[in-house]
Simulated scan of single mutants.
Amino acid sequence: MSRRQTTKRVTMMDVARAAGCSQATVSVVLNNVTDIKISPDLRARVLEAARTLGYGLASPIRRAGLEDFRGSCIGFIVDQLATTPEAVNAIEGARHASWENDVTILVAQTQGRAEHERKAVAHLLRAGAQGIVYMSIFTRRVSLDAVFENLPVPLVLLNCYTGDNRFPAVVPDEVTGGRMATAHLLRKGHRRIGTIVGESFMEAAQDRLAGYREALAQAGLAYDDRLVVEGNWTPTSGFEATCKLLSLREPPTAIFCQNDKMAMGCFNAIGEAGLRIPGDISIVGYDDDELSRHLRPQLTTLELPHRPMGAWAIEQLARKPRPESHAVHKVGCTLVARGSVGRIPADHQSEKPSP
Results as ranks from 00 to 15, higher is better:
175 V>Q: 07
65 G>I: 11
133 V>L: 08
151 L>I: 07
117 E>Q: 10
157 L>D: 02
94 A>K: 03
69 F>L: 13
143 S>C: 13
90 A>L: 08
152 P>H: 10
58 A>Q: 12
73 C>R: 03
60 P>K: 09
69 F>T: 00
71 G>Y: 06
89 N>E: 14
173 D>K: 05
174 E>P: 01
91 I>G: 01
77 I>R: 00
58 A>P: 04
57 L>I: 15
106 L>W: 03
71 G>P: 08
79 D>I: 13
86 E>T: 12
113 R>P: 03
175 V>C: 04
71 G>L: 09
108 A>F: 12
67 E>Q: 15
99 W>P: 01
111 Q>G: 05
60 P>F: 14
137 I>R: 07
103 V>Q: 00
175 V>E: 04
151 L>A: 01
55 Y>T: 01
94 A>I: 11
129 A>P: 04
119 K>S: 10
89 N>K: 13
66 L>Y: 07
135 M>G: 00
91 I>L: 12
161 Y>V: 15
123 H>C: 08
108 A>H: 08
143 S>Q: 11
61 I>M: 15
136 S>R: 15
62 R>C: 08
133 V>W: 01
73 C>Q: 07
101 N>R: 14
91 I>Q: 01
165 N>C: 14
137 I>M: 11
75 G>F: 11
79 D>F: 14
155 L>R: 02
54 G>L: 12
112 G>T: 10
70 R>A: 15
78 V>A: 08
97 A>Y: 11
170 V>N: 02
157 L>R: 05
107 V>Y: 02
163 G>A: 13
160 C>W: 04
81 L>E: 04
59 S>G: 10
124 L>H: 03
171 V>P: 00
66 L>M: 12
86 E>Q: 09
60 P>D: 10
116 H>I: 03
56 G>S: 09
104 T>I: 06
64 A>W: 06
97 A>S: 13
160 C>V: 13
134 Y>I: 03
172 P>R: 05
99 W>D: 11
79 D>Q: 07
109 Q>D: 07
138 F>W: 06
132 I>H: 00
101 N>Y: 12
110 T>E: 03
87 A>P: 03
166 R>N: 05
88 V>F: 07
81 L>T: 08
85 P>R: 06
78 V>F: 03
92 E>I: 13
85 P>A: 05
78 V>M: 03
159 N>V: 14
72 S>H: 13
155 L>N: 01
163 G>R: 14
153 V>T: 05
159 N>P: 07
75 G>A: 05
130 Q>I: 10
113 R>N: 06
60 P>H: 11
86 E>L: 14
169 A>C: 09
107 V>A: 02
65 G>R: 15
159 N>R: 09
74 I>D: 00
125 L>I: 10
145 D>Y: 12
88 V>N: 02
77 I>Y: 04
138 F>L: 11
97 A>P: 02
143 S>R: 13
147 V>W: 05
132 I>V: 15
155 L>E: 02
125 L>H: 02
152 P>S: 13
104 T>S: 10
160 C>F: 07
64 A>M: 12
171 V>E: 01
106 L>F: 06
106 L>P: 00
78 V>W: 02
80 Q>M: 10
132 I>A: 00
163 G>C: 08
90 A>E: 00
115 E>H: 11
157 L>H: 05
64 A>K: 03
101 N>K: 12
89 N>M: 14
111 Q>E: 14
100 E>K: 11
74 I>Y: 00
87 A>D: 02
146 A>W: 04
68 D>L: 15
93 G>D: 03
155 L>C: 06
